[in-house]
Design a protein around this nucleic acid. Structure first.
Lengths: 112, 112
DNA sequence: GCAATTACCTAAATTAGTTATGCCTAAGAT
DNA sequence: ATCTTAGGCATAACTAATTTAGGTAATTGC
């Protein structure tokens, strides 16, 4: 696994909650939106995205609702819940804390 | 696993390289130093630290050397190598990139 | 019609990290 | 003297996130 992949670990729930906090989206849309906003940096694999959305629903962070578009095609829209918004705030804060601690340790390093 | 633990994943190699870039240290010292610098935020478990140091040595990022102190007591000192310094720079840059992308996605979020 | 894209899903393998344990030495307290 | 605490290294077993690699099916554009 690349360093890049390794670093991204643990940020997935936060990222999903972040985009859903603006508007409900379906799975495929979420992955596209994250890629778009990060210039392709975040490309969440489906094998991670869908199971995670299911878990988040079980945990009450999101709700879901099937919607039919153009004929027989279906999309499952996910919306953030109140608990999800709280989790978003909590996780965003945790990330801020982590990043500041990391900067602290790196501060002494000479990156010439 | 807590969110906090989850977030820290992937930062371990960078943290070790960071402290070793200043001076050679032995395992126990590394974990203490990281905890000290982060006010206890980073507490690297031995079950992670030692195997990781071994792997980093295999990969040529660090070198090691036994040293005897006061009688029969031994410490294994690790020193960063040239390749380790390069990896440190690369990983630090990756982290900067990641953090800026994350901030980018979070930027639109209303964290009231 | 057919290829590319959209859209959902899951099982198996990989890998980082935790937990638990073991072995040994040094120093200080009872 | 012996007990405890801290220092110091190490590994085995487990947990959980993520990737890899598949599968199904509908829509759009050529």
């Amino acid at each position: 696994m690349s360093i890049r992949d390794q670093i991204r670990k643990g940020s997935t729930t936060l990222l999903i909650l972040a985009v859903l906090s603006e508007e409900p989206m379906y799975g495929y849309q979420i992955s596209r939106e994250l890629a778009r906003r990060s210039g392709g940096y975040f490309d969440m694999k489906e094998g991670l995205l869908y199971p995670l959305l299911h878990r988040m629903k079980r945990e009450g962070l999101v709700s879901s609702q099937w919607q039919t578009v153009s004929g027989a095609r279906r999309r499952k829209y996910y919306a953030i819940t109140k608990a999800g918004l709280e989790a978003l705030q909590e996780q965003a804060q945790e990330w801020q804390m982590f990043m500041s601690q990391l900067q602290g340790v790196l501060a002494g390093v000479n990156l010439s």
